[in-house]
Amino acid sequence: MSEAVRRIVVRRRSHRAEAHHGGSWKIALADFMTALMALFLVLWMISTATPQQLQGLAEYFRTPLNVAMTGGDRSTASTSAIPGGGDDPAHAKGEQARIDLRDQTRPAETQRQFLELQRRIESTISADDSLRELRQQMRFDVTPEGLRIQLLDTDPRPMFHLGSDQVAPYMRELLRTLAPLLNDLPNPLSITGHTDSVPYANGERGYSNWELSADRANASRRELITGGLAPEKLLRVAGLGDRVPMAGSHPGDPVNRRITLLVLNEQAARRIRAEGEPAGRAPLQE
């Protein structure tokens, strides 16, 4: 009888590494957390910003990226191969389109300059012990025409002597302090005088609020120039009497006795200068 051949079977456990799942989810999570943090930062900035800062921020994001990078009103803002975005830059239509494009891309930088000027004025006034109290009589806002600075009267502290254009000492000091700060920007300046609705005894037949408002505007002009304002920056000096009261005020309120300094943007200055140009002739009919 033959012997049975014994087979020896060796069983070895296989140690195979598990398939790697990849790390793409980590990248996606990191991107999500970064975006979420950026969102929270933006919400926090918006909740703490002033209306003027929000307006400047909005204008910043309206500026095309290529203009923001190259600066100014470069023709790179246009995707057209023709400069100016018009049919032909040599024609009136093409030139007007170029001007319109420039007007749309400059406001962001102008807004930032106006807000910076306001910040410098406020810090200068606040740092001066003799002028600090007058900060409550100043109003700043950015209008479609530029940065408007209003100097308001109060009964305890009027800017001018009653019924005259004689400047009070603190008003004189304030105007002379503002003068070099207004020189920091090349923008032209408009000065407007306003009065309350209290009439003179003779009404408007003689010396009236019209003359008083204009005289006070010119008295302010003289003080600004004495303080160092460049005379060529002045584009308009006018008096509006009591015709434009402060919003929400009674026509006889002291706040309507005020001087408005308007740092003009380019568009507003262009409109004022155009008032002196002759009217164009109507095109001939073919």
Rank of each mutant, 00 (worst) to 15 (best):
T124P: 00
R221G: 02
P188R: 15
L101M: 14
G85A: 09
P231G: 13
L185T: 12
K93S: 15
A92C: 05
L117E: 06
S208T: 02
Q267S: 14
T260M: 12
R112Y: 07
R135T: 13
A92R: 05
A19Q: 03
V263E: 00
Y207K: 06
G23W: 11
E286K: 14
M33H: 05
D100R: 11
T154Y: 11
G276E: 06
V5K: 09
L134T: 08
G228D: 06
T50K: 07
G71E: 06
D87F: 04
P158E: 12
D184P: 00
P156S: 03
A30P: 07
L189R: 08
S75P: 04
Q136H: 10
L240H: 05
A90L: 13
A168F: 02
A68N: 11
L178A: 02
L57F: 14
H20Q: 14
T48Q: 12
L162C: 10
L284G: 09
D73F: 09
E109I: 14
R12D: 07
F160A: 03
S75Q: 13
G72L: 12
L147I: 09
L36N: 05
K93M: 15
D87K: 08
I272S: 09
E109Y: 06
G228V: 01
F32A: 08
F61C: 02
S78M: 14
N218L: 13
Y200V: 04
A127D: 03
V263F: 04
S14Y: 07
E277T: 13
V5N: 14
D153W: 01
G206K: 01
Q111L: 12
G85P: 08
D100F: 15
Q96H: 14
A219W: 12
Q96E: 12
A58D: 13
T70V: 07
Q137R: 00
G85L: 01
D141P: 00
I149H: 08
D196T: 02
W25G: 08
V67F: 03
R6W: 08
A179N: 06
Q118F: 02
A219L: 00
Q96P: 10
V167N: 05
D153N: 07
G248L: 03
A168P: 10
S123Q: 12
E18F: 15
A127Q: 04
A279P: 13
D165N: 10
A217H: 02
N183L: 01
P89T: 14
A282M: 09
R258P: 09
L235S: 05
R257P: 08
D100Q: 06
D253C: 01
G23C: 05
L54S: 14
E275S: 07
R7G: 11
A4M: 09
R119T: 04
T76E: 11
S126E: 06
M246R: 15
V42F: 11
L117T: 02
T177A: 01
Q53M: 05
I272A: 04
G276R: 03
T48M: 01
S14V: 15
Q136R: 13
A168S: 15
L189H: 00
S80G: 02
L182W: 10
N256K: 07
P144S: 04
L115T: 10
T192F: 04
L41A: 15
Q137F: 00
A35W: 07
L39Y: 08
G276F: 13
R271C: 00
M246P: 01
E173S: 11
W25M: 14
D141H: 14
H20C: 03
A219T: 09
A279I: 05
W210G: 13
L29M: 15
D165M: 00
A168Y: 00
A201N: 07
F160C: 04
S130P: 01
S164D: 04
D215N: 13
V167L: 02
